[in-house]
């Protein structure tokens, strides 16, 4: 590929401009399911980071040996291996968190973000660039997870990483740690970004497109 991206760009791209969760809406399943506390978000983010990094390195290293026809299967095989490892390690080292994340660790396998980076980047670039890209994307994912996790834990439990923020009298918004809260938090993030983009790129005038020539007066 003769793209003109610099190493620096490869690193920072995934963090914000092409944030996998907030921009591309990839990997939503873990981003919504396990972000009810900061600790869970962190664990999930790190596990995903580990899998992404491992598979990117491996795929990039062995890209010459993987025939085009079976590349997806090979990628999935590699990813699944790392996920299984992550699963086992978490279960052995931090069983409490492993229990909280439940099946969602295994589901990292089908996180489109990871497969997407292999297909779009690692399989075409040198190992060093692949590592940078994986770092950027992984951090971007982690940031998104932590944003979700902090908002949801803060409002849903009144705590951050388990430490009380609002004091004892706080009435937690339980919805935030329930499923609707996940959708809601991400939805609000996306709305905020839509609002921000509208501000910076000049909001399209919010005019209803009445057909040309229809004389109307909107309710004042």
């Amino acid at each position: 590929m003769k793209s003109a991206t610099t190493a620096q760009y490869d690193l920072i791209r995934g963090i914000w401009r092409e944030n996998p969760v907030l921009i591309h809406l990839l990997g939503l399943c873990p981003a919504l399911a396990v972000t009810n506390t900061v600790a869970n978000s962190l664990a999930m983010g790190l596990a995903t980071f580990f899998v992404l990094m491992g598979s990117s390195l491996l795929v990039s290293t062995f890209k010459r040996f993987i025939p085009h026809e079976v590349r997806i299967s090979a990628y999935i095989l590699i990813i699944a291996t790392f996920v299984t490892i992550a699963d086992l390690v978490l279960a052995a080292v931090v069983p409490e968190i492993h229990k909280a994340l439940g099946a969602f660790i295994a589901l990292i396998v089908v996180n489109c973000m990871i497969l997407g980076r292999q297909e779009a980047f690692a399989s075409k670039r040198p190992v060093s660039r692949a590592a940078l890209d994986a770092t950027g994307t992984g951090i971007g994912f982690l940031i998104a997870m932590l944003m979700m996790g902090s908002v949801r834990e803060l409002l849903g439990n009144g705590t951050l990483l388990g430490y009380s923020v609002f004091g004892a009298g706080f009435e937690p918004w339980i919805i935030m740690i329930l499923p609707p809260g996940g959708f809601l938090t991400l939805g609000v993030f996306l709305l905020a970004m839509g609002w921000w983009r509208g501000r910076t790129e000049g909001a399209q005038a919010r005019v209803r497109r009445w057909p040309h020539g229809v004389a109307t007066r909107r309710a004042a």
Binding site: W210, P211, H212, G213, V214, A215, T216
Partner: peptide, 14 residues
């Protein structure tokens, strides 16, 4: 007070 029939005749014309 939506000018429905007017929009329909315009739609037909279009």
């Amino acid at each position: 007070n939506i000018p429905l029939s007017q929009m329909f005749s315009l739609g037909k014309a279009a």
